[in-house]
Amino acid sequence: MSDTTLPPPPAPARRWTTARIAGHGFMGFWILLAGVIGWAIFGDWDSGFLVQYAPRYLNGLTTTLQLVGLAMLFGALLSLPITWARLSSNRLVGALAFGWVYFFRGTPLLAQTFLVYYGAGTFRAEFEALGLWPFFRDAFFCAVFTFSLNTSAYQAEILAGSIRNVARGQREAAAALGLSRYVTMRKIVLPQAFIVSLRPYGNEIILMIKGSAIASIVTVFDLMGETRRIFSRTFDFEAYFWAAVLYLVMVELIRRLWDRIERHLTQHLVRRTDNEA
């Protein structure tokens, strides 16, 4: 190849290319925005907005964390039988699990929440007969219930996908070694599936944190609910700003934590030489 047909080597001096102008303009926009928001908040610090409403935000944050924590936990438990059904060779069982997953992944979480919350109201007599009314009466429990079912479908998909992902050869090798199916599953398939599914699990937690804001629409005072309450009293847009900050911090923390866990668990997959280099 002759030199003339290749793009010239990167210029040593940084010139004002279109990309550089665009980049500086775009970055300038963010800096300006940050400056204006900072001025708007700290210039008005004396009004004591944050001081007055911090307990409210904290309250909402706790509720959001409880909501997400419980939903993830119950969803994880529920996802196990669904995953089993999804991977089952029985056609009917497989179809039922597919239907479950398809319904919860194919409809909006908001519609599901309405279905459970307002739907439960129409079946009060039936629930009372079963002794379940105290549970479905409470908006928080309704939200936990809906979110658990919803995430169980997503988690089952993650789990089933990662188990399928473990190469067939691994299973055959285990069988050749005379390992039982249980041991194969526990010692060979699941550990590998776990690592594969780690990242999607982290994403699912983040999606659940964001999705949980929907609970505020059915009267739960989660972070979003408290924010809307504060806004409705003050009509001060600062209310939404602090909520945005809290959500972003939560999501970033999870993301970083997950990166760290993943790095820790996949240490053995990283080549030594790469590590030392």
């Binding site: 204006v36 928001i37 001025w39 708007a40 908040i41 210039g43 008005d44 009004s47 907005f49 003050t234 009509f235 001060d236 847009f237 600062e238 700003f241």
Partner: peptide, 12 residues
């Protein structure tokens, strides 16, 4: 001056 009014003022 509220948060929003400041932002609006800056924009204006």
């Amino acid at each position: 001056m509220s948060f929003f009014k400041r932002i609006a003022l800056a924009a204006a």
